[in-house]
Design a protein around this nucleic acid. Structure first.
Length: 452
DNA sequence: TCTGGGGTCCTAGGACCC
DNA sequence: TCTGGGGTCCTAGGACCC
């Protein structure tokens, strides 16, 4: 810890919604909700006008609509948010070289790394206000809330106390007293489950937590969590601000409008996801050894299956192959609402001639078998490449009863494309490609499957 | 109309090796 | 022959964050 309040936590206010209001003046002063707008969507961000009606992040969009029917409901525009975020982060980096982004709308800034020392509360307040003005100018009018203190914990909690558009600097030496009256849930890492456990031990406020001894805490919440919580409760926090954190995993997942059961369709979707993951790996110049398939069942229980390769890969065909085999181990009865494909155990090198990939490259080509039923009824099958003059290239999502549903995105596209349904005899919808071909086999270590 | 999508970190058990 | 401890790797699940 340090002697002056030189750790800043900057949090953009209702970020996604504020960007939408910035770009569309008619939305200013109005309730705006950004998030999934489909039947299973959830709220990412609500403008302060919408929050008055009880709309909150992570709430289902359906519930938000019933609480605030007059709000504007918008799907997210991540590219725009990313660009705005970069402009804001640049202002922070102009202030100090040591900036740690936590997400698109949040970051720590270490003023000590800017060569500033012996800062008073007034100094830091002035710096925070200047930064807010710079952010506003660089972002086209967005407001931020800033917290400052002698540690990350204090800065982070402080930034939340005067939202929106506030500045809170916690004077050095007052940290433990500052935290004492607060609920334990203000401490990042204490969620519903931990709060429940602590509550059963009679602990609700940080003051209660400060009374507990470390051994008792570890018994309640486990070793790692207990020791860190014990320190944080007394505002003992030495964690440094770190600018470059390594990526540990890359994944893609999708929740379906209705639960899926058809194995061939799900396999085709897993393929697309593998391609998207591979593209993102390649873009980041990363490759990974462990492929994970995630499935969320109709009853919301979630399962993962993973398999580790002998060497890292960023080859979409290898990832797809592994994902597909993991899918074979998955019980789809009852239907799944979500499917995901991820790669972890990342290596920071570019693939070359490693065993894994060369072997896969020489493996025989296999044609995917598709259910006859699907072909007979409609002439389309899941995963099939199609083309439409108005929407471009796409692939078959599902078909039946004389209609075919198409997703208009390429195999490797980063963002989901629009979904459209056509009559199967629609002359504009053409099938340019033969059934997909796949390579088989990839080198793997050990086993896979439920019991390793 | 219950419950997104992208992550991180931790735990626990089994395999395997020394 | 039996018992066992420690370390590492892998897998599955869960808590948590924005």
């Amino acid at each position: 810890m340090r002697g002056d309040p030189s750790v800043l936590h900057v949090d953009l206010d209702a970020f996604f919604a504020a960007v939408e209001q910035r770009d569309k003046p008619s939305l200013r002063g109005k309730a705006v909700v950004v998030g999934g707008i489909g039947v299973r969507g959830v709220v990412s961000t609500a403008s302060y006008e919408a929050r008055k009606y009880g709309v909150r992040s992570a709430m289902s969009t359906a519930e938000a609509r019933s609480r605030c029917p007059h709000a504007a409901y918008l799907g997210p525009r991540f590219e725009v948010y990313r660009r705005t975020s970069q402009a804001v982060m640049a202002e922070m980096r102009a202030l100090s070289p040591l900036v740690e982004p936590l997400s698109l709308d949040e970051a720590f800034v270490d003023l000590a790394a800017a060569g500033l020392s012996g800062l008073t509360v007034d100094d830091v307040e002035a710096i925070a206000n200047e930064l807010k003005a710079a952010i506003r100018a660089a972002s086209g009018g967005l407001t931020a809330s800033v917290g400052a203190g002698t540690s990350k914990l204090i800065a982070k909690i402080a930034s939340d106390l005067d939202k929106p558009d506030g500045v809170v600097v916690v004077p050095p030496g007052t940290e433990a007293a500052f935290l004492a009256p607060m609920q334990v849930t203000v401490i990042p890492g204490v969620g519903p489950a931990t709060a429940q456990r602590l509550s059963m031990a009679g602990v609700r406020t940080v003051a209660d937590l400060q009374q507990l001894d470390e051994e008792e805490l570890v018994r309640q919440v486990g070793s790692a969590h207990g020791t860190s919580l014990f320190r944080l409760a007394t505002a003992t926090d030495d964690r440094p601000v770190v600018s470059d954190r390594e990526t540990k995993s890359i994944s893609v997942e999708d929740t379906f409008e209705t639960d899926l059961i058809d194995r061939a369709l799900i396999a085709a979707i897993a393929d697309r996801m593998a391609h998207r993951v591979a593209e993102r790996l390649q873009k980041a110049q990363l490759s990974g050894r462990t492929v994970t398939l995630k499935s969320r069942m109709h009853d919301f229980t979630t399962h993962t299956r993973s398999s580790t390769l002998a060497g890292p890969t960023d080859d979409p065909r290898v990832i797809a192959r592994v994902a597909r085999r993991l899918l074979d181990d998955t019980d789809l009865a009852g239907g799944i609402r979500l499917l995901g494909v991820g790669v972890s155990s990342l290596a920071d090198w570019i693939q070359d001639d490693l065993f894994t990939d060369s072997e896969a490259a020489e493996a025989p080509i296999e044609v995917i078998e598709l259910p006859e039923r699907a072909r007979d009824q409609t002439g389309f099958y899941p995963g099939q490449d199609v083309h439409h003059p108005d929407f471009g290239p796409g692939w078959v999502w599902g078909s039946g009863r004389g209609r075919v549903t198409v997703r208009f995105e390429t195999a490797a596209s980063l963002t989901p494309g629009p979904v459209r349904t056509f009559a199967i005899d629609d002359p504009l919808l053409t099938k340019p490609a033969a059934p997909g071909a796949e390579r088989d086999d990839e080198a793997e270590t050990g086993n896979n499957g439920p019991n390793g």
